[in-house]
Design a protein around this nucleic acid. Structure first.
Lengths: 114, 114
DNA sequence: TTGACATATTCCCATATAGGAATATAATGA
DNA sequence: TCATTATATTCCTATATGGGAATATGTCAA
């Protein structure tokens, strides 16, 4: 079997660097396809294809205005990803906490010394 | 061209559901390959292959003990992912804030009615 | 309708899987 | 050294790309 389709879920969709770039670009503001292509130095068909994937997994929203189609990132669609990755943050934050504890215990705080 | 190699970066590595499962399983505790295979109902060669990918992108650490090799997730390796996704959290939290504001402004607060 | 502009889709192709089966390696104990 | 146990690797194959080029579709204005 081959790898799962990129259109399966957001984890697969963001495996492509350009798609990540598109999502970042469209997070704050809407842009038409042409502008995306220009901003990221990509061919128009390429952008359209990536947008198709992102659309299929629900990561962008589109709005037609005349001849142009404005796309924008549906930031909420990144919540599942965020939730999954955040589970791991617990572990490394434990380490950070330990570092912080050590830092707070050792340093020049004469008052609390002893 | 085909998709970028899964061994390129963590974004590609976690595109595979089983690799995500492995990372989750090994986040808290170490386990030898056989145990991973059993826990996730996967064939041993399959697990070894996924571990190889995870190793190549630095997402797991290994420790040999006799015939067994214990693997564990290097949770810090998920920090770049976390950082990237978190950028988007800003946006949706804005929305949540707006919802909250509206909720606080509209409801049964006769005092502020005008 | 025709022309022009903005996007989307289709075709073709080199490449990267991921799984299954078989086999190779490594480590240990007799 | 040999057998055994635990992993890793190789081989083969069906499948999913992602880019480039060419073409189709959609929208608007004259």
């Amino acid at each position: 079997m081959a790898r799962a389709a990129t259109t399966t879920d957001s984890f697969n969709a963001i495996a492509e660097p350009r798609r990540r770039a598109i999502l970042t670009l469209l997070a704050g503001r809407e842009s038409p396809v042409g502008e995306i292509a220009e901003a990221l130095h990509l061919a128009q068909p390429s952008v359209s294809k990536h947008l198709r994937v992102l659309r299929q997994v629900g990561m962008v929203r589109e709005r037609r205005q005349g001849k142009q189609i404005f796309y924008q990132t549906r930031t909420e669609s990144l919540q599942p990803l965020h939730a999954w990755v955040s589970e791991f943050a617990r572990f490394w934050s434990h380490q950070l906490e330990r570092v912080r504890e050590r830092a707070e215990a050792a340093p020049p705080s004469p008052v609390l010394k002893r």
